[in-house]
Nucleic acid binder design. Structure first.
Lengths: 164, 164
DNA sequence: ACTAGTGAGTAGGAAATCCAAACTCACCAT
DNA sequence: ATGGTGAGTTTGGATTTCCTACTCACTAGT
């Protein structure tokens, strides 16, 4: 069964297979902002219309977006996030925060998000058990598929034995 | 590269331009796991070698990875995350949590991450000011570039400037 | 010295995707 | 009747990706 060339089974990879194609996350951004109509998406994202149509179909099939009519007589549609789609918003927020921090000088943020608490949103990823902000050093990965090694960063874990 | 008109200025788009190409985030995943050697990356990700080489060059140029020699005599390299790269890890964790929740039935998670607090990591994105978990309804977007609307059908709010 | 093996890539052409503009189709407005 | 809008589809060429094979530098075994 297993060819000598099996990538690592991983939810990140699976998620990206759905949502990692070009423009998909930007579609989600617009849709979360409430701009769910086809021409708005074309304009705000700058994607070719055919590519956009393909993405939208895929995202609807995946249950991330839903297509709803906002007008019956001249049939007009609007895409909106499903619950699953909304739950991807944190990914967008985290990515935006990273971009703001590392890709822009100073404070020229093109968009600011306000939290209901009254302040600008500065998202942090925390452990939902202890509440601490997650940091790389505090994490240990446990892959469960057999045969995969997760070498510790500086930790000598000489389990290099990967029987083909 | 022919960047098509990118209408909405946005840090999400900018971040994705760097890190949103196929395999880039998987490279980061492996590198954060400590598997930074070329052939490891090829095996664990399943990417063609030439594409991988291109991605690595781009990520190094962008300051997300750095290439360090772990052996001089037979020159051998290893890619490792920079600080900027490590700060992308929360994006991966958030994406993984989403994939675990929405793409997998039950508990067949291919990888479990343990937090230093002793529990399995279930990441949550929170407002770093008030500490609450962010939810879509609690957010208001303020785009600052002129001419862009963030239409909300019920949210026809005059998007005043952010209080200074 | 002569093989074989490994790590880190390049080279080349077929296959898949992407892009921009033009086109459709259905409806509404003048 | 003509023009306009929304939501796509078609078309055909330009890019990217994919995949196999190849190189290059070095080491290990005999």
């Amino acid at each position: 069964m297993a060819a000598p060339k099996d990538p690592r089974p991983c939810s990140i990879a699976d998620a990206l297979a759905l949502v990692g194609e070009k423009y998909s996350l930007l579609v989600l951004r617009e849709v979360c902002l409430g701009n769910g109509r086809f021409d708005q998406l074309v304009r705000n994202i700058g994607a070719p219309r055919d590519v956009l149509a393909t993405r939208l179909r895929r995202l609807v099939d995946a249950g991330i977006l839903e297509k709803s009519a906002y007008s019956e007589r001249p049939q007009r549609f609007e895409y909106r996030p499903t619950t699953a789609g909304l739950e991807l918003e944190p990914v967008l927020l985290t990515l935006m925060a990273w971009g703001d921090r590392h890709l822009r000088k100073d404070d020229d943020r093109p968009m600011v998000i306000e939290h209901i608490c009254g302040h600008e949103l500065l998202p942090a990823v925390t452990c939902s058990v202890c509440g601490d902000t997650v940091q790389h050093e505090d994490l240990t990965a446990h892959p469960q598929a057999p045969g995969w090694t997760v070498a510790g960063p500086a930790e000598a874990k000489p389990s290099q034995t990967v029987p083909s």
